[in-house]
Computed example of a mutant assay.
Amino acid sequence: MKQRWLPAGLIAMGLFLVNVIARLVVRFAAESDDDKQVTIGLWALIAVGAVMIPVAFWYGRRHPMLRVIGDLGLAVVVACLLAVLIGPFVSGVAPFSNGVGLVFRQFFYFVGLSAIGAVFGLLALMTMGLDHRSQSWKRYIQRVGTNPRKGVRR
C-alpha cells in the first residue's frame, strides 16, 4: 500500500509546495499591487503545469496508463484542495473571503493546467515509445521473433 500511495502523496505535496511558494512571494513582494499578484499567480499555475510534465513522463514509464491517470489525478485533486482550502491562510486571508466563485475558478485552473501538463508529458512518453504498453509490445515482439521452441516428438 505504501509503495503505491507514497509517490502520489509526494507529487501532491510538491504541487502544493509550488502553490505555497507563490503565495509567499505574493504576500511579501506584491502586497497591494493587483497586477503583480495576478502575474505571480499565473506563473505559479504555469509552474504547476510544468512540474506535471516530467512527473507524468516518469510515472507513465513505470506504470500502466489507467494507474497513471488514477494516481496522478488523485494527487492533483488532493494538491488542489490543499492549495484552495489551506493555501489562502499562507497569504493571510480566509479561503472563502473573496467568494465561492473564486475558489471554484482556482480549483478548475489548477486542475486544468495540471491535466494539460500531464497530457504533454504522457504524449512525449508515447511519442518516444517508452510508455508501459509500447515496452510490453516491444518485449512481445522480441520474444515471438526468436526461434520457436522445438515441438514434442510424436
Rank of each mutant, 00 (worst) to 15 (best):
W58T: 10
F28R: 09
I21D: 02
L72V: 07
L45C: 04
G70I: 02
I53P: 05
V38R: 15
V77K: 08
C80N: 14
A79H: 07
G60F: 06
M52A: 09
D71W: 01
L74I: 07
D34E: 14
V25A: 14
R61L: 01
F28N: 03
Q37P: 04
L24R: 11
V38L: 15
I46S: 05
R23N: 13
G73W: 04
V38S: 11
A44G: 14
L24P: 00
V48E: 07
V25R: 14
V48R: 05
M65N: 00
W58A: 03
I53E: 11
L24H: 05
E31N: 02
I40N: 05
C80S: 12
R23V: 07
R23E: 08
R61C: 00
A56C: 09
L72K: 04
F28H: 06
A29R: 11
G49H: 06
I21P: 04
F28L: 14
V78K: 00
F28Y: 15
V38W: 15
L74V: 04
A44S: 14
G60L: 05
I69V: 04
G60E: 06
G70L: 00
V76Q: 10
N19K: 03
A47R: 04
K36S: 03
R27Y: 08
N19Y: 11
I69A: 01
Y59S: 08
R23C: 06
A29V: 11
D33S: 10
L72M: 09
V20T: 11
W58L: 08
R27N: 04
W43S: 12
R27K: 13
V76N: 09
H63C: 03
A56L: 08
V20N: 04
R62P: 00
V26F: 13
I69D: 01
S32C: 03
D34N: 14
A50K: 09
Y59I: 06
S32T: 12
L42R: 09
D35G: 14
Y59F: 15
H63W: 03
A30W: 14
G41T: 14
K36T: 07
D35R: 13
V48A: 05
D34C: 11
G41V: 14
L42S: 06
V51G: 05
W58Q: 04
N19W: 10
V51L: 15
A44D: 06
I21A: 11
V26I: 14
K36H: 07
M52R: 03
V25P: 04
A50D: 04
G70K: 01
V68F: 07
P54H: 13
V48T: 01
V38G: 10
P54Y: 15
A75L: 02
V55Q: 06
V20L: 10
N19F: 06
R62T: 01
P54R: 15
G60A: 10
P54M: 15
V38N: 12
D71V: 01
V20A: 02
V25I: 14
M65A: 02
V68E: 01
I69Y: 02
W58I: 06
V25Y: 14
V68K: 07
R61A: 01
A75W: 02
A44T: 11
I40P: 05
Y59H: 05
D34L: 15
A79C: 02
V20H: 02
P64K: 03
V26W: 07
I40W: 05
Y59E: 01
G70N: 00
W43V: 09
A47F: 11
V78S: 01
S32W: 12
L74R: 00
R61P: 00
D71R: 02
